[in-house]
Design a protein around this nucleic acid. Structure first.
Length: 573
RNA sequence: CGGGAUGUGGCCCAGUGGCUAGGGCACCUGGUUUGGGACCAGGGGAUCGGAGGUUCGAAUCCUCUCAUCCCGACCA
């Protein structure tokens, strides 16, 4: 590429809406421009990098036997009604009607379409396994798009779906994809962690997220300081304890007047108790069923764990009206004893360890003190329903402590089971001639987000520092004096020889001053700069600068090509 | 959806009732420069987000509306 005719404009200043460094640098380097909130134009520099990431993805997936397909963005509502997700996917699913008044949506993901496509072709176990993928635009009408390509509404995603005859085979496929993802992100030059993850609305019961470690990451990750355990904050487990309470320390239950004291802070202050002596009682709607969730006062309820425990589609707090109906009291005075309407009580394991605890009395302006589990109430279910936090013991090993990191989720793999194949009758005849649903997995990579994450992890004050594998160009040739014939001739010759050697080279043949070119080159982040100036060329030398280290060395013109070929292959190892 | 903020040339910002709406960056022309975002001179580009209203007079005040950003809730 000759920069003199490139569709490229760099900027010294950034729009104030760009809040994170990847967004700022992508804007300044002329890679992306916003069209609407969360919707971006990809300019040539960005697209070149995206295509390289895509090429890496394709290579690694084909190695594992995946086959590429392309499905439509516009999808008929019927399929979504069949899977049930038309009802509960929510406003993130952009719905619209065609001229015949039929319902459609823009695909936020493609489980429905792929399952439909596969069931039309799948007859026998002999055809399996299949693992189909595509790289394509998705649309999710996010409540709050932000951070440029990090959380857009329209974005490029690689999504893959596996179909297997058995759980074992499906988990083998899952592992293949896990390995492929590890290879992909390694090749992209990223520092990342694969962590245990919640499955959310997509369903299924096994999942890992690939998190690129970066301060600006939206996700919290907890990992063990000692063993290899790592999980998304919302999935991270609590270390199991055994609870033996000494009955002799129990005191008798009492009702106390606590006028207008609703929150944990208010009640603890009013009664002179510590937060850990209280039980937080919250009414949740778990799909259609109301459940009273109990956790220790100093802990936070983890909705993802409730959703997983009850295998629910949606979990949300009940509204005030429902709370009043169930408890018989205003919100803020709920508790496990004396509910107006008996509902299921789900207590976090930690509640078993509290002696003489305080909870709402299900009576407005009253709490109960010195309540004890088993003696005063029973939980219908006990489980892990709270958020883990940094500093807590590792749930897996004996020595470790959980540490927190921030991460950008660039990929996630799910084992789905038969959630979609059952609801959509994606069946086949197994070895016994019996019709059974396919075992499925699904696997996503945010391609644009991977690009943004790479910049978050690889930049300095001057600009981007591209990993070689995903740099828009691998090297920039910089003739500094366009009036000097030797400079121009050597530059052009090198440029051609690079292209012939299969190196992605650009040449800055713009009539600009040296300082301008240097700053631009650092901003865009070409891994290598070949600086060609009158002084050095007179001695048959050029200057080679490595962006990542800032190292400069003079080199004979004749040696530059081989050096570059070698440098590139080293960088791609 | 709740809370907060902002909309003035492509980008950053000034202008808070009164002459033809300013500056910096970017862009065009000429000249001087030429190894870390040059300088001088000249020039082009804006219905001040939109609609309505108040006023002799509105970028500025009022009403409505649209858009964007931040925090929260929410989210493969």
């Amino acid at each position: 590429m000759r920069l003199s005719s490139a569709f490229l404009k760099t900027m010294k200043e950034v729009p104030k809406e760009a809040q994170v460094v990847s967004h700022q640098l992508m804007f300044r380097a002329g890679m992306i421009q916003k069209l609407a909130s969360g919707i971006y134009n990809y300019l040539p520099m960005a697209l070149r990098s995206l295509r390289k990431i895509e090429a890496i993805i394709r290579e690694e997936l084909e190695k594992k036997g995946c086959q590429e397909v392309l499905m439509p963005i516009v999808q008929p509502a019927e399929l979504w009604k069949e899977s049930g997700r038309w009802e509960y996917y929510g406003a993130e699913l952009l719905r619209f009607k065609d001229r015949k008044d039929s319902d459609f949506c823009l695909g936020p993901t493609h489980e429905e379409v792929i399952t439909d496509m596969v069931r039309k072709n799948l007859k026998s176990y002999k055809q399996l396994p299949w693992n189909l993928y595509q790289i394509q635009s998705k649309f999710r009408d996010e409540i709050r798009p932000r951070f440029g390509l990090m959380r857009g509404r329209e974005f490029i995603m690689k999504d893959a779906y596996s179909f297997d005859e058995s759980v074992e085979k499906s988990l083998e496929n899952y592992q293949l994809m896990y390995d492929a993802y590890t290879a992909i992100f390694n090749r992209c030059g990223l520092i990342f962690k694969a962590v245990d993850a919640a499955t959310g609305a997509i369903g299924g019961d096994r999942s890992h997220e690939f998190q690129v470690l970066a301060e600006s990451g939206e996700d919290g990750i907890l990992s063990c300081s000692h063993c290899g355990y790592a999980a998304n904050e919302e999935k991270a487990a609590i270390k199991e304890k055994s609870y033996k309470l000494d009955n002799s320390t129990f005191i008798s239950l009492e009702e106390v007047h606590t006028p207008n004291q609703k929150s944990i802070e208010e009640v603890t202050e009013f009664l002179g108790k510590k937060p850990e002596e209280l039980i937080k009682s919250m009414v949740y709607m778990v799909d259609e069923e109301a459940v009273l969730v109990l956790v220790q006062g100093n802990k936070e309820v983890n909705e993802a764990k409730i959703q997983a425990y009850f295998n629910a589609n949606i979990v949300h707090l009940a509204d005030d009206k429902t709370v009043e109906e169930i408890t018989g009291a205003a919100t803020g005075f709920a508790g496990p004893i004396g509910l107006n309407k008996q509902i299921k009580i789900a207590a976090d394991n930690g509640v078993q360890g509290i002696i003489n605890m305080v909870c709402g009395a299900n009576k407005t302006d009253y709490h109960l003190t010195d309540v004890n589990i088993e003696r005063d109430f029973k939980a219908d279910v006990l489980g892990d329903f709270i958020h883990a936090a940094a500093g807590e013991p590792c749930p897996v090993c004996e020595e470790g402590i959980l540490e927190e990191h921030r991460g950008i989720e660039v990929g996630q793999v799910f084992y789905l089971g038969t959630k979609y194949s059952k609801s959509m009758s994606c069946n086949f005849l197994d070895r016994n001639g019996k019709e059974v649903p396919a075992e499925m997995g699904c696997y996503g990579i945010g391609v644009g987000r991977t690009l943004a994450a790479a910049i978050e992890q690889n930049h300095d004050d001057n600009g981007i520092i591209w990993p070689m594998a995903i740099a828009p160009y691998e090297v920039l040739i910089m003739p500094l004096q366009l009036k000097d014939e030797d400079v121009v001739n050597v530059s052009n010759t090198l440029y051609k020889s690079f292209l012939e050697a299969g190196i992605d080279a650009a040449i800055d043949d713009r009539n600009e001053r040296a300082g301008f070119k240097f700053n631009d080159a650092d901003l865009i982040g070409y891994p290598v700069q070949i600086i060609i100036g009158s002084k050095t060329i007179a001695e048959g030398m050029v200057e080679v600068k490595v962006r990542a280290t800032g190292e400069k060395q003079n080199m004979k013109v004749a040696e530059v090509k081989d050096w570059m070929i070698n440098f590139k292959s080293e960088a791609l190892k």
